[in-house]
Every structure is written in C-alpha cells, then in structure tokens.
C-alpha cells in the first residue's frame, strides 16, 4: 500500500536522506550543538561545575578586550610561533621533498616513511623525548656541547627566555616537517617529467628548476601547508603544555593554556568560552586572509 503511494524516484530520494540521517545527527549533536552552546554560554557566568548560570551580556568579551593583557600577550606568542614555525616547517618540507623526489624509488620510500614517522607519534611521547634532549644537566644537547668543549653555551633550553620558544619550534618542526614534505612530494609527482627534462636540456640547473618549476607548480601545496600550519599554531596547546608548561614565566604561554586555566582553575567556563570564540574568529579570519593571498593563480604557463 505504502509502496504504491511513492514513485521509485521518491523512494530513492527518501532512502538517500535516510542514509544521510545518522551523519546529519552526528554533525548536529557533536558539532553544531556544541558550537551554538559555546556561543550562548560565552555570554554567561557559567562556572562549569553546575547547571546554573546567569546571562551577563557582553561582559566576558569586554573583559577580554579591555582588561586582559595576558590574553593578548599569549596571542602574540601564538602569532610569533605561527609565523616562525610555519616558515621553517614549510621551507624544510619543501627542500626535503625536492631532495627526495630526485632520489631512486627505494630511497624515496625509505625517506618518506622515516620523515613521516614523527607525525604519527603522540605529542606526549614527543614532548618527553625532547625534554630529555633539552634537560640542562644531562640532556643530549648540553652533554654534546660539553663534550666538544662548548659547555659555556649549555643553557636550560626550555627555561631560558631567549631559547624556550625556539626549543618548541625545533621540536614542532621535527614533528611536522615530514607531513609538509609529503604534501609537497605528492604535488611534485604531478609535475610532468617531460617538462623537467626539456628544461634540463635547455640548460636549466637545479636551482632554476626549483625556482621556475617546483616552487610555482606546488603553490597549491604551499597554500594547504600554510593554512594548516598557521591554524594549528594559533590553536597550539599540547607541545607547549608538555614541553615548557608556558614557561619560563609566561614567555611561551599560549592562548589555549589561558583558556584551560580560566576554565579549570578559575572556574570561569563562560569566560573561557568567550576566549575560545575570540580565538576561533581570529583563526578563521587568518585562514581567509592566507587563502586569499596564497590561492593558486591560473596565469602560470
């Protein structure tokens, strides 16, 4: 009876929507609802402990913009980190990819796997390993410096103002350079061998090939790398929390750490949500700007 009232096309459509339903529910429950709830509660004084809260208008946002220099100081750490780490990581990834693509297949596979390996290691393990490397008294770097007679340069790498952020950037680059390399590598595979061969015949050296072929033809990969890296760095938490704890003092304290402390130590969940929303907006705006700047142009021939 029911079958007769719907046409085959209708039934297909209904079935299609039915198949979409679980994913739609998941999207609503686990994505849209938390975002909407976060935005709503960012206008409250919710402590995160109980269900009770009061709406306090824009007070949390006003506080962030007028009386929270620490938030903006942390944001400046994020921005500094994002630009340095992204530049270093992208450059290194590009150079690695250029190097690897010109090796034999066997070596390519070896380096691809080796360099990608840190990407799949959990952040906690990476932080523990780098902490041992950076430890002032018996860390790998300082032991090495002392062994080669450069002991005067041995410092507390993660507890020194001038080296702490650099220490995080180095470990982060070690972690993600392989990922960047893979993106470039895949992009470079699309470059026609004939084109490169013609260039070579015409006398283009390695540098000329990089400058006029590899670099412009992997612009899409550069865009993806920049966007992923910058947004990741602006939201960074784990590596800072585990490696420096935001120290020394507040020199490597990033926005996410302030958000966590505001929520879980000060019991100001409403304010922490407002801080997260501001961060979210900054990340989105940055992403849009970078995409506009780096979007591949169609004029390359």
């Amino acid at each position: 009876m029911l079958g007769k009232s719907f046409s085959f096309e209708d039934k297909r459509k209904i079935l299609g929507y039915f198949f979409l339903l679980p994913f739609f529910i998941m999207l609503v429950v686990f994505m849209f609802y938390p975002i909407i709830e976060s935005v709503v509660k960012s206008f409250t004084n919710w402590s995160g402990m109980t269900d009770s809260f009061e709406f306090i208008g824009f007070r949390n946002y006003i506080r962030i913009f007028t009386d929270m220099p620490e938030y903006w100081k942390a944001m400046s750490v994020n921005i500094k980190y994002a630009f340095i780490a992204t530049t270093v990581q992208t450059s290194l990834g590009f150079l690695l990819a250029v190097t690897i693509i010109n090796l034999t297949r066997r070596w390519q596979n070896f380096f691809k796997v080796s360099l990608y390996l840190p990407v799949i290691i959990p952040a906690a393990a990476i932080a523990v390993m780098w902490r041992y490397i950076y430890t002032p008294d018996y860390g790998l770097i300082n032991q090495f410096l002392r062994a080669v007679g450069l002991g005067r340069f041995a410092v507390a790498w993660t507890a020194n103002q001038s080296t702490a952020l650099g220490a995080v950037i180095v470990s982060n680059t070690w972690r993600y350079a392989g990922f960047t390399m893979v993106l470039y590598y895949v992009s470079m595979l699309d470059i026609s061998k004939e084109t490169l061969e013609s260039a070579r015949v015409d006398g283009a050296g390695r540098w000329a090939q990089i400058r006029y072929f590899y670099f412009p033809l992997t612009r899409g990969a550069t865009e993806i790398n920049f966007v992923l890296s910058i947004t990741g760095c602006l939201r960074a938490f784990d590596i800072f929390y585990l490696l420096t704890g935001g120290g020394p003092g507040t020199h490597t304290k990033v926005v996410s750490m302030w958000i966590m402390e505001t929520a879980f130590q000060s019991f100001k969940f409403g304010r922490a949500l407002a801080m997260s929303i501001v961060l979210f907006i900054i990340v989105v705006v940055t992403m849009i700007i970078f995409r506009a700047i780096l979007a591949p142009k169609d004029d390359f021939q």
Partner: peptide
Amino acid sequence: YNTGNLGTNRSQVFVDYMTD
C-alpha cells in the same frame, strides 16, 4: 574568596621577573 589560578599567575610573573 575563590582565588582561581591566582597562585599560578603570580608564580609565573615571578619567573618572568627573575629571567627578564
């Protein structure tokens, strides 16, 4: 009163001062 993360924040300012 609820001092929240005041203790941590003070200590961090102390380290800032000592190392800067």
